[in-house]
Design a protein around this nucleic acid. Sequence first.
RNA 1: GUCCCUGUAGCUCAGUGGAUAGAGUGCUGGCCUCCGAAGCCAGAAACGGCAGUUCGAGUCUGCCCAGGGACGCCA
Length: 584
Amino acid sequence: MFEQIQQQISQQINSFLAKEGIPSAPIDWKWIPFAGQWGISTSFFQTAAQESKQGKGIPVGERAQQIAQMAADHLGLPEGFSKVEAVRGYLNLTFSTSSFAKQVLAAVHEEGSQYGKGKPTHKRIMVEYSQPNTHKAFHVGHLRNVVLGSAVCNILEWAGNDVVRANYIGDIGLHVIKWLWCYLKFHAGEEPPEDRVRWIGDIYVQASKSYEEDPTVEPEVRALFARWDRRDPDIVELWKKTRQWSLEAFKQIYTMLGVQFDRYYFESEMEDSGKDLVKTLIDKGLARDERPENAVFIPLDEILGTKDKYRVLVVLRSDGTSLYATKDIPLAIQKFEEYHLDQSIYIVDVRQSLYLQQIFKTLELMGYPWAKQCYHLAYEIVTLPGNVTIASRDGAVVLLEDLVHEATTRALEIVRTKNPEVRDEKQKEIAYTVALGAIRYSMVSRDSTKVVTFDWDTALDFNGQAAPYIQYAAVRASSILRKAGAMPETWQPPEKLESAEITLIDLINRLPQEIQKAAKDVKPLVLTNHAYELARAFNDFYSQCPVLQAEPAIRDFRLQLVTAARQAISNALAVLGINTPDIM
RNA sequence: GUCCCUGUAGCUCAGUGGAUAGAGUGCUGGCCUCCGAAGCCAGAAACGGCAGUUCGAGUCUGCCCAGGGACGCCA
């Protein structure tokens, strides 16, 4: 909103410096860091340092202050500012809060639920996330991926991009065959019960256990895999049926989490094109076929002349069966052909970093110019206390639905005590919104490079920096607005604003740029922090500035501010995939 | 062994090379006779180590220490 003003002043300063013969350095504006003041700031250390290099003997700090003072004197008091001063090498320009406050609130009022959205970039970005395996449980370890991925999608979309949400289902592989073996052996003919995810997960645990403990199992599983490979109708039918059970369970989970996908890819569909592609790779001389002694592999380091960097990528087993890499390469090609992407983002945990670099490099060697547009967003895994890795095969998992159920139960207790007059159905709905918000927020409010240790106490803590705190600020705003009745038609900011009001308006104003920054860095954390800051500023305002009891002019202005604050908070949460209740 | 990530307050985390390093939680104390206390206010408490680059380093570079991860037929 203030870019134009910043540019104008930058120009004035630059031409002034040029006239004075002072070497110019780029001027970058920052928001004044002190609460209760509102404006922009820049420093002249760089300029002073450049001058110093040319042999002038004045200490940089001192000189920066001199230049800042000269610039301040030269600028005088530009339109729209209340104060210009030079402080310790910085030039601080403080806004006339009244006029800028009006602009900010008017912008929020006008854009409403769209406030914060950027202009179209005309870029199409695909984000592949979730990538669950069928025939396995869906647990809290998978949650981070889904929440991170969906938040990234929303952020990129709000930043103005055309986003394609993609999911790549692992519907075939040794894990699936193990499961089928176990089903045929111990559960033949069974239909999934209500608690489907758990049932599927339990069979997988049983299968893994048998596979590891009983050496006679492996040959049986291999034989079954061979039958699938030659498309034995009985096995294919069973595979299709059981796969569907998993897919339906996933759909339920996605609905529960409020996420959706535009395009589903299946691993099983990539098998044939993958095997064809391996032939091409061998023909091109990129892949080396040393079957039957060895597998088919691409000696990346050898080709690139690097050492221990890209290693080698195995693209086909020595028995001719496919691997992940066999399928990931044709998948990438298909994505770009289908959608003409400007960027392709993979949300995959950090353990697959090398693997994905190998894939991207292979695509580059194959001559695809878009290979450089592939980006791996690596996130750290979720562990259990004591650094225990969550593994589907041993069953030491916390199921997603258990977490949601427990969180909802606890939220419901609080909702009931605080809103006894509300009908049961509504209470449950609110508890669900709060519980899910808390879960989602906790998954994206720390950097992807940090391991998340799941423990119940932290996951179910609704106080402090958490979604319920932010939702609560919005609920308080709603409550004021409800009691206020009709909104005033006209309003004016007072000449002098309270410190809490300024901080709040400042943060509301910054929401659009924070969304842009979150998109640029592909980092939802930026936004979770800003949402929290907004809520905190509102709570501060709430305790310091009475609204309903204020004198009429102030009251009307503050009602407008409360409306804008609620909108900004609600929009920030919406981008994170979190709903804002009106009571809680 | 090679490569990647992490190391900030008791604990869990923020921190675009720039002003006084911010929160949450826990601890101590205060605030419901004003719009909802899932809240607010106050207090004590921190950049793993050593060099270097820079006017300026929590941030960049190198080495060391500590923890985690990856490294040819798992996904």
